[in-house]
Design a protein around this nucleic acid. Structure first.
Lengths: 345, 345
DNA sequence: ATGAAAGCGCTAACAT
DNA sequence: ATGTTAGCGCTTTCAT
């Protein structure tokens, strides 16, 4: 276990001053050719690596980005991370991840620990609990301190910072229209309660699409899930609701689900009832994840381009960090959705 | 945008020395009650936060863990991250993530950037390409430098460090036995080529289980997938093979797949042929992920306890960092698998 | 061409 | 009880 060599170490070994070593390794023309070569050779031989911490202390730059997300075991978020990581690395930045686990307290704590010198800027997707509390002081304070912040997906409009959001309403409208254009008329919507903003937006998109096609929305065809902790419970609730509807002989020839899991629930019911997908009922859902890809039949989805969201977020932040973009101006990028067609439609 | 206040700033404002401030904030009894209170109050009012970077430079400790994984958009790995993150946070550590993307070069690069002061230790799952090259010098050098390393899942035995591995063989044996004990006799194995170590181990476990139950392994019942870049190609290859087998009227009443995707392929074929699961054919597979949970029928799986793997890895590393465990001794923890029963069996 | 010294923010041993 | 100082590793300005 040899210790990592420092400038001082090299200077001592070679009987020169620390600054001579520093300059040589930076190929400063100030230093004589011979000395420089000698120092460079020695440094290479001893595998010298500058201590980034020391650099950070001097530069006030850590070249790392703090990422705070509600959860990590999630197709959307892990893809966003991927996008951020890719772009950041390409630009010499590291990414340090903290998971809020949808908790306000953990979000605040995470920001505090990272804010003190560890990171140059934040990329955040706000926890559900924070929305419920409507308490964004921790983010506001960070911004006030001059630390650049980029919000993605779960954003709060009153915060003055860059934002990257998904065109949820537009995507939902496109999805619904897609089914209508396939000749479907009675489209069941599986969505969340209205206070969940993405669910709400997607519901709006669904209604918009119906109206555009002169279809009158039918309340019986809108099922709003309960907000259960466990997705198992949500699933069984939805299954029951769908079964009820079918038992009442309500005609359904299409289903638009605001996420994969809701679509999976529908698929389960249809399969048990021997209803053919897509011949009798076509399905489309949000989130282009593994469930959609590997279910049978595979599901047509609305892709949110999670990786792109990550890349764009990282770009916005790094532009601020490198002052490529003015610190006081803030933009909101809307990432469009696109439909990925598969067997279920 | 007020600047973050430092000890020096406080000292100046209050006309005391920096060390008086430092000591006060640490509640040192050396300092007089009155001065201390005054300083503490001032610090609080100005929202003083110590600069962690400066601390790191002094302590030679960054309180952050470097995590290097092959990919992040992956149920297993994202669960491991979750486990690491949880345990690390609880113990005051941050996690900085770098993705090798299965590339040797990126793995080496990632380690280099993080090794220079950023992190106290590494947790690594080795990239496929690194195994192909059999070049582990970057990890060896890190260990030689005295930086603790913990390897998980994809480990290389010759490296002297702590390791956390999955009991792949045991899990496969249990899975196969599980089907046998359900009365299944003709169990199809869907596995990878032998050079993929986990696939290989799981194949061994399958054969072991058959032997233990006096069943002679039948080569026709072992399908080894091709090693394609795209899982779509793999899927269609597997589907074709399974169809062939069924066309030849080879009897099959159980399927053991070494991962969810292979099981999903099988499910697809069976559904198209109207073969009932689990009545006619029971299915079990490795990886207790979302595909298994939300497919219909849902799949019985072998859970690898990814989160536990993460927690144990983090614990091993932090024990080394805090010298709770001797630096020169290395242990290998084997995490057992367990079966999660669902509809497919 | 080379080196000394200050300073980034903090701690701690050592004065006073 | 409070202050001075050195030092963590490095950069940079200002001597020599």
């Amino acid at each position: 276990m040899k210790k990592r060599i420092t400038l001082k170490g090299i200077a001592n070994e070679l009987n020169v001053s620390i600054s001579t070593v520093s300059k040589s390794l930076k190929n400063s023309p100030e230093i004589g050719e011979e000395t420089r070569q000698k120092i460079i050779a020695f440094a290479k031989a001893h595998n010298y690596r500058p201590n980034n911490i020391a650099l950070s202390l001097k530069n006030r730059k850590t070249k790392t980005i703090g990422l705070i997300i509600p959860e990590i075991v999630h197709y959307f978020f892990s893809n966003v991370i991927n996008g951020i990581e890719k772009f950041a690395n390409k630009n010499g930045y590291n990414v340090i991840i903290a998971v809020s686990n949808e908790s306000f307290e953990k979000e605040v704590l995470n920001m505090e620990t990272l804010a003190n010198g560890h990171i140059d800027g934040f990329i955040i997707s706000i926890a559900k609990e924070t929305f419920k509390k409507q308490d964004f002081h921790h983010i506001q304070e960070t911004i006030d301190l001059g630390v650049p912040v980029v919000l993605f997906d779960r954003v709060f409009n009153n915060l003055k910072c860059d934002k990257v959001i998904v065109d949820d309403k537009g995507g939902a409208e496109a999805a619904t229209s897609f089914l209508i254009e396939k000749g479907k008329k009675n489209i069941l919507l599986l969505t969340t309660q209205d206070y969940i903003s993405v669910g709400n937006l997607r519901t709006q998109g669904y209604i918009e699409a119906l109206k555009k096609h002169q279809i009158i929305p039918d309340n019986r065809l809108i099922i709003k899930s309960i907000d259960e902790a466990s997705s198992e419970k949500e699933m069984s609730y939805l299954e029951k609701q769908i079964n009820n509807l079918l038992n009442q002989k309500v005609a359904i020839d299409g289903i638009f689900a605001v996420n994969e899991i809701y679509a999976a629930s529908a698929l389960k019911v249809l399969r048990k009832r021997n209803i053919n997908v897509p011949e009798e009922v076509a399905i489309i859902c949000f989130t282009d994840g593994v469930i959609s890809r590997y279910s049978s039949p595979s599901l047509t989805t609305v892709s949110q381009h999670a990786e792109e969201i990550g890349e764009v977020s990282a770009k916005l932040l790094i532009d601020k960090l490198t002052e490529a973009s003015p610190l006081e101006e803030h933009i909101t990028k809307v990432i469009n959705c696109s439909i990925v067609e598969r067997e279920s439609s």
